[in-house]
Design a protein around this nucleic acid. Sequence first.
DNA 1: ACGCTCGGGACCCCCCGTTAGT
DNA 2: ACTAACGGGGGGTCCCGAGCGT
Lengths: 177, 177, 177, 177
Amino acid sequence: VTAEQTRAELLSAAARVFARKGYDGASIGDICAEAGLSTGPVYAHYGSKAELFVAVLREHGHRQFLTIGGSAFDRRRPEQAALVIEAVVAAKRDPEVADLVSSWLRGGEERLAGSIEAAQRAGTLDDTFRPETLGRLATMLGLGSCLTAALDVPAVDHDDWSRLIATLVDSVRAGDR
Amino acid sequence: VTAEQTRAELLSAAARVFARKGYDGASIGDICAEAGLSTGPVYAHYGSKAELFVAVLREHGHRQFLTIGGSAFDRRRPEQAALVIEAVVAAKRDPEVADLVSSWLRGGEERLAGSIEAAQRAGTLDDTFRPETLGRLATMLGLGSCLTAALDVPAVDHDDWSRLIATLVDSVRAGDR
Amino acid sequence: VTAEQTRAELLSAAARVFARKGYDGASIGDICAEAGLSTGPVYAHYGSKAELFVAVLREHGHRQFLTIGGSAFDRRRPEQAALVIEAVVAAKRDPEVADLVSSWLRGGEERLAGSIEAAQRAGTLDDTFRPETLGRLATMLGLGSCLTAALDVPAVDHDDWSRLIATLVDSVRAGDR
Amino acid sequence: VTAEQTRAELLSAAARVFARKGYDGASIGDICAEAGLSTGPVYAHYGSKAELFVAVLREHGHRQFLTIGGSAFDRRRPEQAALVIEAVVAAKRDPEVADLVSSWLRGGEERLAGSIEAAQRAGTLDDTFRPETLGRLATMLGLGSCLTAALDVPAVDHDDWSRLIATLVDSVRAGDR
DNA sequence: ACGCTCGGGACCCCCCGTTAGT
DNA sequence: ACTAACGGGGGGTCCCGAGCGT
């Protein structure tokens, strides 16, 4: 068994266990049991539990962070949402995680703001709103969807939801005022 | 010193420490130090850390849960938001917390749906959307605002935000279609 | 309520709880709950848990120590036996208890030896055995019955037991050799 | 250092400390200090303090219990007897210990009953007594000898004692009736 | 002034994150 | 790379003094 393979399996197992039990709730033992490893070898790959968690976030977190478009916010899967929430919670204690999450969020909002600004310049989006403001709305919805996904709230009708989002988007289109 | 007074002080201190450090991060010792108490007496008032947390949620949580109106989502205070997030995280492990959070959420959404339905019947709100769908949107925004508040994202311009929310609300008003 | 009454009730409750849960297993809280008191007032009557236990032994212990005759060893009641066992255990750590138990035991064996010697002189008991030896046998059986009573071993047939004891006693009667 | 070696050392140390201080009086720290270990590794070998105690009983207790013939009951060593007494006391609080002690006692009595029954069939022992009754007598004497050994009662003359036991045994031999 | 409510430490079991040795 | 061990707490509980209320 190669080392890289073990690393990948460890990362995957850690992602699952962290998502299931949370950062504090997941013990190194749990993760190693999930990966079929002993507790020791973890520290050959990652210096600490925090580092392992950060690695998990880097690997599995970025793509789950605000990448799902608004119309699918009602369909976010719980196991994806869990990592995001844990990241936020962990960010409150671990500065490294805080930096990571902060950079993701900032990056996401900047990309969003860039797209929005471009749309505004192209005349397809109301340019009386600042790009950051619109971006913040999208961020809030994205993060909010993580929480509703984590909790077991009953799903709403998807068609209805899509139409609602479309209506809202239309309302901030240029000329719709 | 009366017992009720100590209880209240303990609850308040616990709320602060839980909000600052999270459920797992906060130790009984931390809370007692904050309350100026010894670790022992806690268990004369609350059977366990989980019970204390639940009591904190019951006392300080319900009013912070989705009670801030939409236009002020950008101004949610971090210490209030933190408890909500911790509640969601704790809900994943503790069934009692899960029930509590679930009932809050359900209650909030039902109240919202009621208001929305009333507005729809009165003809002031687009009645082609189901009340639950509109309610879910508000819930997501509310919860999302908790996460943005917890993270230290820079605030957006408040006037801009208010105008955006107003525009969105207008878009789902009856006749604005 | 007079103080003496409270003392008596406390002693009785302590006897029950110590017998039920053992010295270490019984907490002051348990005893006070049994007595319908608060934990504090105990120390107005007894300086410590150990003192309370000694008082219980003095009050309720002496009469349970080796007072049941040999043929009824199989019928010793658990709650009576429990205090004896606890006393023996406590004697290993508390010198005061050790003295108490020692004096009980010594007194019991001396009384036994006296009776035995009298019987030997009267010619009804084999006088080739020393009285202490026969007394020790009875002591062992008495103490042993406390342990079998404390554990929940199934009872043996009482008639069979009585006949066995009678046979054994006959075997040390004078002339039966 | 192999695990089995540590296990054995731990067991031996636990046996000593439990015998010296009793089940409740002995702390995990005490045992580990005796074994020259840290407190942590105990739980890699035994799941709990109760399990460790049970293991001690299995290892050091079973051979001391009822295997010494009746003629040596007067010579039981205090440190061996202590474990048996502690087992009875601990059984009253910890259901796990209770189950083990109970099954242990039952097993011992059944083995005894088996031997007795065999002797009865062989015609060397009075078959008018039920095997359980004779076994119970032996059990009582065995347990009783633990208590007299634990307490510091003066020893009786050994020859006298042996002769007494022999006389009693003779009395239940077949044909001696 | 007595007697109870309340608070104070101390400690215990348990377990966890982490590192040497094989 | 894994087995085995290490301390450091964490929660929980207990036995026991001070200080208010009757």
